[in-house]
Structures are given as C-alpha cells and as structure tokens.
C-alpha cells in the first residue's frame, strides 16, 4: 500500500454509504452486485414515527462496521464462533444507489418510486437490499422485484419470509386505508407471482387478529411465533422456513423487521414487542437465510429518534451484516 493510499484511508467520506460501498448509478451494476436503496419514509406508520431516519443511521453504522472490519482484516479476521480465519471478499461490488424519492402526501407515487428502483436492480442481476423506513415500504420493494421477475423471467415464482413481531396482514386500517405498516404482508400476498402458500412469518408475538392467522394458515402459510422460536430453536425454525418458502420455486424474498427483536435489546422501533428474542437468536435466523436463494431483501423499522442510546441502529447494522455475510466475508480455513 502506498503512503498516499494509506493516508487516504484515514479520511472517511463526508456522506456515509451502506457498508462503505460505492456511490453509483444503475448503469454500473453487474450481476452478483449488492445494491442498496434507501426508503426514508415513515408516512405510512400509524403511531410512533422516526424510521425515515433509518437509512441515514444505517449508512453510518454499516460504514463504521466496515471501517472496523477493514482495519481488523489487516491483521487477519477470525470468526470467533467458528474459529475460522476469514478475509473480506475482493471484487464483489457493494453499491449504494441512494434513496428512492419519497412523496409523503402521495403513497401511490412513493410505491412507484421504490418499486421502480428495486425492479431496475433485479433487471441487472444484482441483489436489491432496500432499507426503510416503516414496514409498509417493504411492499413496494417486493413489488418491484415481483414486476421485474414477471417481465424478465415470466413463469418464475417466489416464496416469502417475514421476520417480524407482527403479521402486518390487515387488509386496511380504518383511518389509513390499504397502504400502511399493518398491511404490507397482505399486499405482498396479492402479487401475481408470489407463492402465497410459501409465505412464512417468524417472531410474531403477543396479541394478533385471529382471523388473519386463520386466513394465512388456510392458504398454507406458516407462522412461527416468538414462542416457537424459543421452543423449536432459531436455526431449526429458519431451516423449516426456508424449506417451506422454497417449495416449487427457487427464489425467496426476505423482509427483516427489526421489531421482532425484544424491545429490551432494541427499543428504537415504532411498534415494540416483548418477544424475548435475543440478538443472538436473530443472528442465528439470518445466518441460515444468508445461504438461501434470496431475490430481494429489505430491512425496516429502525427508528433512531426512539433510542437515544444509539444501540438500535448498531444492532440493526450487525443484523444486516449477517444476512450479507457470505457476500462480504470469505472463509480461509482453520487458523494454524
């Protein structure tokens, strides 16, 4: 490394990017790249807002995480869980496409704006990773994936896994209509090329609408409650979820709502639950999903203003790292 190159690493960008990736536009995307899209909207959250600051906070946290990893990698990374020596992947592009345009007073325009971005990423063969925002934004992110698949791979179907404290399967909320953070899963279930019977929910806690449960299980969907995660084990739940979501299709859309994590650990989210799901269990789930054939990912409901300690976005960044880990880190065998 030249002296000037070494010195240049001492400077951080004045604007953070997801995992310190490149700032680029769609024309530079290649198959296999990971393309991040910010969805800074909480206009469709019905109570405690603040998730519009989520993308910015996660850009900062993930770039800090990457900075730390690069520094550590100079001395050789060790995965303390497996004992394996690791290194950072070279040549795999992480691209930050910036934020989708949000129209706070026009939800349909926002849907179009986000869907166009994730759809355009799928067209290039890259993996769209959309960062919210409240959970409603997951629907347009998934919609874009669905539309692109329908256009470029007609006949292709995909499964769906939602890690969440809530089902988000309402048809409509009285004051908010059909587009809000309680309806995104139902809207996704209505997409023409999703396999509804392959939909899986994980981490649901507390009181939910029993009619929604009956409907989901009626069409063949699976619900693993938080209690199931404790009883069956996070890894086993994740394996069963992947097996279910992948039946007769080879792609899975994954939506990660951080509020499935117990609010004692992650209070910076709008709709807290007491799931008793720990960060470790959440990471175990994601470790399994990271190896699944994902066609799109979103992470939602990180609300930095609701957690002055800042740990919520730090944990969320770690979760995001775990789901992208095979694309960021390569194992180099057991250390000598």
């Amino acid at each position: 490394m030249s002296a000037s190159e070494a010195l240049s690493r001492a400077f951080s960008s004045p604007v953070s990017r997801f995992f310190d990736g490149e700032n680029a536009d769609l024309s530079l995307l290649r198959r296999g790249d990971v393309a991040f899209i910010g969805m800074p909207s909480d206009a469709t959250h019905t109570s405690r807002i603040g998730t519009r600051f989520g993308p910015r906070a996660l850009r900062h946290e993930t770039s800090m995480l990457m900075h730390q990893l690069r520094r550590d990698a100079e001395g050789g990374l060790i995965d303390t869980a497996s004992g394996l020596a690791c290194g950072l992947v070279d040549g795999r592009a992480l691209v930050d496409l910036g934020d989708a345009t949000i129209h706070p007073l026009d939800v349909e325009k926002t849907i179009r704006s986000i869907a166009d971005m994730t759809g355009a990423v799928v067209k290039t063969g890259a993996l769209p990773v959309a960062i919210g925002g409240d959970h409603f934004n997951s629907y347009p992110a998934c919609l874009g994936v669905s539309e692109a698949l329908a256009r470029y791979e007609p006949g292709a179907r995909f499964g769906y896994i939602q890690i969440d404290g809530h089902l988000d399967f309402c048809d409509r909320l009285a004051a908010w209509g059909p587009f809000n953070h309680a309806t995104n899963a139902r809207r996704c279930s209505e997409l023409p090329n999703i396999r509804r019977e392959n939909m899986v929910w994980i981490g649901i806690a507390g009181w939910v609408d029993g009619n929604d449960v009956a409907e989901i299980e009626g069409f063949g969907g699976l619900i693993f409650s938080a209690e199931d995660v404790h009883r069956i084990g996070a890894r086993e739940v994740a394996c069963r979820a992947v097996a279910h979501a992948q039946r007769n299709c080879d792609r899975i859309y994954l939506t990660i709502d951080v509020d499935a994590l117990d609010s004692g650990f992650l209070p910076g989210t709008g709709s807290i639950v007491h799931s008793e799901i720990t960060s470790r269990q959440y990471l175990d789930l994601l470790e399994v999903f990271a190896e699944a054939p994902l066609c799109g990912i979103d992470m939602v409901e990180v609300s930095p203003p609701l957690d002055p300690s800042g740990r919520s976005e730090a944990i969320a960044a770690q979760l995001l790292f775990e789901i992208l880990r095979p694309r960021l880190v390569v194992e180099r065998g057991r250390r000598a």
């Binding site: 806690a205 009181w207 609408d209 449960v213 619900i223 409650s225 209690e227």
Partner: peptide, 22 residues
C-alpha cells in the same frame, strides 16, 4: 394497544404465543 375489545381493526384477538383466543 391492548384495547382490542374496542379496536374495530381487530376482529378476533388471539395470543399467538399461547394460541388462545380472547
């Protein structure tokens, strides 16, 4: 939040962990 008995959006409250209906 727990006033499901007055919540028009929740037709049938269920404790998903215990699978019991209220």
């Amino acid at each position: 939040y727990f006033g499901s008995h007055f919540n028009a959006n929740m037709k049938s409250a269920m404790d998903i962990d215990q699978r019991q209906v209220l």
